[in-house]
């Protein structure tokens, strides 16, 4: 093997090691969830569905799952709507203070969650809103909107500006052009955004932990179980959450990719 080939080989091997490191905890938690030992190590114990049975029969976890799903659905609709409005404003208009406007829209992911959590808790408590499902939705919408906006903005990039103008020239009002042209064109991104923001909300624990009060979501339940002691139920819940989130992400990805191609062809 020559020198170039050797370096290339070593780099690829290193890449594999890095991926292994990133995926070790994910794969391990799935394996541990089917393992009978309370404290899994090598060699592994026997195959067992004990932890799944425990979580299925736990009313607290069922209640948390319902809360999580309601919150994720409400959040995804609100965040996608606000994200759409912002993406469209950015796409179509130039206006004064557009820089600060976009900064305001995109800033939330740069604030540490623990600080958002404390600020949200204090602010919502001031208005008597903390400790409800609504409070989690309000907070999660702030965290999810930037992602929704980014996805929809990418799709709008592919829309020919003259499409809307053509509709106006043919006598359509701005509102009907929006309904007949812009919304159908961005629909794949809207669906992707609904899925992705739901997945983000479904996974978020810091802010939810602070503002949820007694309306715990699934990640908050995980947090509380982990605080107690070693409890392999966490792996079972984690695997369940992982499958839910990944389903949403894969759906979003497939829809987005399929229409990405279509968009390019139609232009």
């Amino acid at each position: 093997m020559n020198k170039d080939g050797l370096i290339s080989f070593l780099l690829k091997a290193y890449l594999l090691v890095l991926f292994l490191f990133v995926f070790t905890p994910i794969i391990a938690s799935v394996i541990f969830s089917f393992n009978s030992d309370r404290f899994p190590t090598i060699p592994l114990g026997s195959f067992s569905l004990e932890w799944y049975q425990l979580i299925i029969n736990d009313p607290d976890i069922a209640e948390a799952a319902v809360t999580s799903i309601i919150v994720a659905i409400c959040t995804s609709i609100l965040a996608t709507f606000i994200g759409f409005c912002t993406a469209y404003s950015d796409y179509r208009y130039d206006f004064k203070f557009k820089g600060p406007y976009l900064a305001l829209a995109l800033l939330p992911p740069t604030i540490p969650l623990i600080i958002m959590a404390l600020a949200m808790l204090a602010w919502l408590s001031k208005f008597g809103l903390s400790g409800s499902k609504l409070s989690i939705v309000l907070a999660h919408t702030v965290l999810c909107t930037p992602f929704a906006m980014a996805i929809i903005r990418l799709r709008l990039n592919q829309m020919d500006e003259s499409l809307e103008a053509a509709a106006w020239n043919l006598g359509a009002s701005e509102w009907s052009a929006m309904r007949e042209i812009v919304v159908p064109f961005t629909m794949p991104a809207i669906v992707s955004s609904l899925c992705l923001t739901a997945a983000v909300s479904f996974d978020e624990f810091a802010v939810a932990w602070f503002v949820s009060g007694l309306n715990k979501t699934i990640p908050v339940v995980i947090l509380e179980i982990v605080q107690g002691n070693i409890d392999p139920r966490v792996n079972a819940i984690g695997t369940f959450v992982f499958i839910t989130s990944m389903t949403l992400v894969v759906i979003a990805q497939i829809i987005f990719m399929r229409n990405q191609k279509k968009g390019v062809q139609s232009v």
């Binding site: 890449l15 995926f23 994910i26 391990a28 938690s29 541990f32 997945a199 996974d203 070693i230």
Partner: peptide, 29 residues
């Protein structure tokens, strides 16, 4: 590879941490 790098964002960070907790323990893997 890019797709697989996105996957961890949608797995609970809490569960991954708990997983490391078990893996790195005195009697762990």
């Amino acid at each position: 590879a890019m797709f697989f790098l996105i996957v961890p964002f949608f797995t609970s960070y809490l569960v991954r941490t708990f997983s490391w907790y078990v893996i790195l323990a005195k009697t762990g893997v």
